[in-house]
Design a protein around this nucleic acid. Structure first.
Lengths: 345, 345
DNA sequence: CCCGAGCCTGACAACGTTGTCCAGGCTCTA
DNA sequence: TAGAGCCTGGACAACGTTGTCAGGCTCGGG
């Protein structure tokens, strides 16, 4: 004899619904909905009964159903490269703060610099119907986002511009910052300056390289190929690249490192050398002021970038129709010693 | 040339549904569902037609509806204290990796060490019907989670145990680590050792304080109140606390700092002093090896903690019924110089 | 005493998807 | 050639919530 399946809050894996609450409180379904959402038109006495039933059953509204009905999820997605990177922690946090101020949750994922994984993540977020997306692109073609944009998913790119689509971007002045950092070294007498950076297919890496080249050209210094190391980020290879620049036939007297991870590795390499080599790094690093010498850096404000992007995102969501814009935030040269060392041959 | 999408896809704010796809492909609704989910029983020819319609319309499955039907969201929630803290970045990342391996997305939020905000976040995540929760508790009463546990939401606490409920915990051996770190200082001849830590209502802070006390007691050293600073974390007050310990009537010759932020601040304070004061910190910090002297720390492996917790979570989700457990991971003393300085009066 | 206004309340449809079940057409074999 | 079995496709209900709308009640005024 098949018996009617019992719906109760105590059965493992089953959650009470508004219907259950309504039954227990002896009211209609809609009344429960009203209480849960704080809508007007419910007697205090009825409200009390409903609230009691809610507490007794441990009812929590099912937001999936709610979203299905209402259309908005009150959540935004953040796709970045690596949550563990000290640059992205503060960025992520500031995006979260803005989201929170707008009553939204943050879903985030790391692309690990893999374009395919970026797309996979973004599409998963779209399937969840996030209201908006903050994307730090790994790939360089974002046409797959066209249907989403058309459907009204607010989107802001960060750190690097989107490929083949027209969307908001918030980024640092990578070119100007790098150019300024290298010019700083030149102003302190250096002419043989090394550059170690990421793959030029990454926008920031390319821009910073361009800044390096521009500064050198401004000063009329021809750049030797052996001074440049591109697409090298893992510590062992950075180490080798730095050693080569320092010991080659035409050794550099200063190095410009194009991101925080490279900077840290190079600091380690230089610590093992007696010759004083000047260093300017892109991105600030913690404790940089306490090293001997202090590390001179071109700093970008991750929290500010994140905040700016998120605020832009919510402006889109508020319905204000504004054409896509490119917002470039300035960088700041922080001199601490390593960038002011004179050339030592 | 791609075909022009039909009306429903082009109307702003409206997304195509399976119904739209079915209409365009000239098939039934369920057939589209089958194609989207890779279910068997569809002719290659039909599948092609459906796929074409999907691409043309830019259709993306609505996961809210899917979740409503299926019950599982394939997402887990992570509530931590502050995403911007260098300890939580790697932790968060490793949780994400495990989640990804299980096909789940990660939703995370920062409690900012505020119990109310923790609860608010956790309940919001439950409303989204996350399959599981990883929580770094800010509060000390988690009975509000009882209905969720009963409903089968997998839950693992990290870094600190849950209050008043029986749940999995993954944490470091805070007591043993601190005790070992302080014993290390004692072994190097120190007797007047300062302690600067967070509020004792935070479990880790309390445990580390207990470790400090135990080590001192083991060595038969009575502890002066003026050597201890509790509940102080903002840099300015930590700075003042450290200065007082160093210049008081009974000045310390060594300091044990109970978390990474405090350690960094104290390093700055000590850098301004000529007297060499020994230092051991709880939590590793980047570049600690390059400072003069290198910073000796009691290190915990954030990534390992996160991974362990997440794996435990998915074991719960896989249906394996295991009683709640407390998993304590060992810490590691890394000697780099600052902890081996002799006492200097 | 009756009627309308105003307030509570609940029945019902809809959101977009998936599970169930059945129909129709095909192949294969006896 | 008929019957059995298989394969493909589609109709329909259900998931839990919210918006719409209408019904019933109370109360005050005519």
């Amino acid at each position: 004899m098949p018996q009617t399946p019992l719906r109760s809050a105590t059965r493992y894996g089953t959650r009470p619904t508004m219907k259950d609450v309504a039954a227990r409180a002896g009211v209609g379904l809609k009344t429960v909905s009203r209480v849960v959402n704080g809508e007007p038109g419910v007697t205090p006495e009825t409200e009390r009964r409903v609230q009691e039933a809610i507490d007794a059953l441990g009812f929590r509204r099912n937001d999936s159903a709610r979203v299905l009905r209402k259309g908005r999820t009150a959540s935004i997605g953040l796709v970045l490269e690596d949550l563990a990177d000290p640059f992205y922690g503060p960025l992520s946090r500031s995006v979260e703060e803005v989201a929170r101020a707008h009553g939204a949750l943050l879903i985030n994922g790391s692309s690990a610099e893999d374009p395919e994984r970026e797309q996979e993540l973004v599409l998963a977020l779209c399937a969840r119907r996030v209201d908006g997306l903050v994307v730090i692109p790994a790939g360089d073609d974002h046409r797959y986002l066209e249907p989403e944009l058309k459907a009204g998913v607010a989107t802001v790119f960060v750190d690097r511009p989107a490929g083949y689509i027209d969307a908001d971007v918030v980024l640092s002045d990578n070119f100007g910052g790098a150019r300024g950092g290298v010019a700083h070294l030149i102003a302190h007498g250096h002419r043989r300056i090394g550059f170690i950076g990421d793959m030029p297919r990454i926008h920031t890496a390319a821009e910073r390289l361009r800044g390096y080249r521009a500064a050198m050209e401004d000063a009329g210094i021809p750049v030797a190929d052996s001074w440049m190391s591109l697409g090298v980020t893992d510590p062992e290879r950075v180490r080798r690249a730095a050693e080569e620049m320092l010991s080659g036939p035409d050794p550099v007297t200063a190095i410009f490192t194009a991101n925080n991870r490279v900077t840290v590795t190079v600091i380690r390499v230089l610590a093992g050398h007696t010759r004083r080599v000047a260093l300017v790094g892109f991105d600030d690093i913690e404790l940089a002021d306490l090293l001997q010498p202090g590390v001179t850096v071109v700093a970008q404000d991750a929290a500010d970038i994140g905040r700016t992007a998120a605020e832009r995102l919510f402006r889109q969501l508020d319905g204000t129709q504004v054409p896509p814009e490119r917002i470039e935030l300035p960088t700041r040269l922080i001199t601490r010693g390593s960038g002011e060392l004179p050339p030592a041959d």
